[in-house]
């Protein structure tokens, strides 16, 4: 049983690292869906867009994909601000955000995906960086750097956002707008402006998430869909408004997927996330770590 113990240990560790990366993909939806109540199902498409901008920066200009994604943050932030503006004017102010808002984001998801297909084709793209390839070895456990670095970047991203949310006025206002926009207005903060900033941040996070995605695996436009279920599964499991719960849920999911693909084959792993989401929704809709 020596061999399978190694296998188990490695599956656990790579699941943990994978979960760290899932957290980076989910943080944007934790903000938009968890705090602003905007069901941005197009978020994975923006993540893929982030992968492709990192890919261009890397393959055309030779920059490091992750550093490039940090430089590109303002561009993604502005994209988010622009999308929120359209959403706000068209849906929130008219008061029928539910169906049409969902359809709007579904349309955006589709437009982004098809545009990427038209521009780049359906070939898998990958990037080149010194940390893709080598691994650290601790005993029998392998720590591939192409999983370790993304996980660390992801945790740094979430830590920064958590600090911003807890210690700045705008950050606290974002947390407040989810609970009571009217009270926020009485504090002389414009809910619309606060939500715009928060949505901008959520899309900005997709730039970094996209870059670390393409470090982990080759990317083609339609893989966005695989992430929709994962993201919302993690988000709901983690209890919508807590980043900490979200990270734990992401790691649980990463480990479960990694175990499934090690012991049953990778073709089963998509069903894990979605199956878990369905179970969570049916049994405990407030999430494993929810306060409600």
């Amino acid at each position: 049983m020596d061999l399978s113990f190694d296998l188990l240990g490695n599956a656990l560790v790579s699941g943990l690292l994978l979960g760290g990366f899932y957290a980076a993909v989910t943080i944007g939806v934790s903000i938009s869906f968890g705090m602003l109540d905007i069901v941005n199902i197009a978020h994975p498409a923006f993540v893929i867009l982030g992968s492709y901008t990192a890919y261009i920066a890397n393959s055309v200009f030779g920059f490091d994909p992750i550093l490039a994604s940090i430089v590109l943050l303002p561009a993604f932030y502005l994209l988010g601000v622009a999308i929120y503006h359209v959403y706000d004017v068209s849906f929130e102010r008219r008061g029928d955000a539910s169906i049409r808002g969902l359809a709007f984001f579904f349309g955006i998801l589709f437009i982004t995906e098809v545009t990427l297909v038209l521009v780049f084709g359906v070939d898998y793209r990958l990037v080149d960086a010194p940390y893709i390839g080598p691994s650290l070895h601790i005993g029998v456990i392998d720590l591939p750097l192409r999983l370790l670095i993304p996980c660390l970047v992801s945790l740094a991203l979430i830590g920064t956002l958590q600090l911003f949310m807890s210690y700045t006025f705008v950050g606290r206002a974002v947390q407040a707008v989810a609970q009571d926009p009217m009270a926020l207005r009485l504090m002389a903060a414009d809910p619309s402006r606060i939500k715009r900033i928060a949505f901008g941040l959520s899309i900005a996070s997709a730039s970094i998430a996209g870059a670390i995605l393409i470090v982990i695996q080759p990317v083609e436009p339609s893989i966005a869909r695989d992430y929709i279920g994962r993201i919302f599964a993690i988000c709901v499991m983690g209890g919508l408004e807590s980043f900490g719960g979200m990270v734990i849920a992401a790691m649980i999911l990463g480990i479960m997927e990694s175990l499934t693909s090690t012991f049953y084959g990778p073709s089963w792993s998509p069903a894990v996330a979605f199956g878990f989401l369905l179970l969570t929704l049916a049994i405990r809709p407030a999430g494993l770590f929810g306060r409600r």
Binding site: I41, G229, V236, F274, L278, L281, P285
Partner: peptide, 25 residues
């Protein structure tokens, strides 16, 4: 039966999830 007691958005997300589960099966 599983999801309709929840808010509308959860139903939507769950249908998407169900599509992937069914496809994997």
């Amino acid at each position: 039966y599983l999801t309709l007691r929840l808010r509308g958005t959860y139903f939507s997300i769950a249908t998407l999830a169900m599509a992937v589960v069914a496809q994997t099966l």
